[in-house]
């Protein structure tokens, strides 16, 4: 039994049979999987998930003749989990990813981003454009204007307020348990197949720090720590010429598609989509095989065009 499987509930092990790999990146120990051969597809998760959210993507994309790399963000999954909030920053996480990509010398990357995988992955892409072939964008954002949901005190800002975050998200794993449960469409299926797996990799309050630290990096005004990075992201992304596709959950009520997918479409007018699938914010849980198929079709199309 490998290290990943040893932390997974028995029922979930068949869904994640991949060999764990580890790399030192930017001073941290990062876990990732690396399956198949061909042009790389790099799948980036967000808060509070880990590579497991892409369990239904790996097989179909590898079978299509591509190499699939799925890292666990530092602070999640099987990667190292720093115990101080100051260990985390948006730029630092982008640098972690850059270190992994350089170590593996990945080129012609199709970059698949979700949630905080968006700002970190797109920061990497814009700083290392020669390594990127295309973008797949799902339920995320890349500009300094917050989602309306993120401006509300109930439930969002209260959930990670000083001391409240360490209590609700730390002591009670609120985001991984109840938060994700409320952010999928088929909640019973999520409870049966996935919830315990996400909870298993964040077993103690100290391991859950990033679940309340990430929300504090969402800029709510021009004074926010990451505001300037998001301004840069939006400005530079508007100049990007990469082929792209936008995939969104039809029922997403955090980053609603009418606001967010459409804004990405305006920013990247060359992008395909938005393709709407069944899903709230964690759309991979509701429509994994369908999204994997959309990604394979998209990359097949790039190959046909010689892109």
């Amino acid at each position: 039994m490998n290290q990943a499987q040893s932390v997974l509930p028995e029922a979930a092990r068949a869904a994640w049979p991949y060999a764990p790999r580890f790399a030192r990146v930017n001073g941290w120990r990062m876990h990732y999987i690396d399956e198949g051969a061909g042009d790389p597809v790099l799948l980036l998760h967000g808060n509070p998930t880990w590579g497991y959210i892409y369990r239904e993507f790996v097989g179909p994309i590898v079978a299509s003749g591509r190499r699939v790399i799925v890292p666990d963000m530092i602070g999640f999954g099987l990667s190292e989990k720093p115990t101080r909030e100051q260990a985390h920053s948006l730029d630092g996480h982008a640098a972690n990813l850059t270190a992994l990509v350089r170590r593996l010398d990945l080129r012609r990357i199709t970059l698949v981003v979700h949630d905080w995988g968006g700002p970190t992955g797109l920061s990497f892409a814009l700083a290392n454009p020669e390594r990127v072939r295309a973008l797949v964008i799902m339920s995320t954002w890349a500009w300094p204007t917050p989602a309306e949901f993120h401006t509300r005190i109930f439930p969002w800002r209260m959930s990670h307020a000083p001391l409240v975050g360490p209590y609700i998200f730390g002591k009670y794993n609120g985001l991984t348990g109840r938060g994700m449960y409320l952010s999928v469409v088929d909640r019973e299926r999520y409870r049966e197949r996935a919830q315990a797996v996400y909870e298993a990799t964040l077993p103690d309050p100290a391991t859950r720090l990033l679940t309340w630290a990430w929300p504090r990096w969402i800029p709510l005004d021009a004074e926010a720590r990451a505001h300037d990075r998001f301004v840069w992201l939006e400005r530079e992304l508007a100049k990007a010429q990469w082929p792209a596709t936008i995939i969104w959950g039809r029922e997403d009520d955090v980053f609603d598609h009418a606001t967010f997918a459409d804004r990405f479409k305006r920013l990247l007018p060359q992008a395909e989509g938005p393709h709407l699938v069944t899903g709230r914010h964690f759309l991979q849980e509701d429509s994994g095989p369908e999204i994997a198929s959309l990604i394979v079709d998209f990359v097949d199309g790039l190959d046909r065009k010689g892109a």
Partner: peptide, 28 residues
């Protein structure tokens, strides 16, 4: 209780009602 006391002290727009509603939402 300490969190409730803190929220009361911080004051508007932070309210104990919102704290309690958040706690109930997350099944605390």
């Amino acid at each position: 209780a300490v969190l409730g006391w803190m929220i009361d002290g911080v004051g508007a727009p932070w309210t104990r009602d919102d704290l309690e509603a958040t706690g109930r939402l997350y099944r605390i």
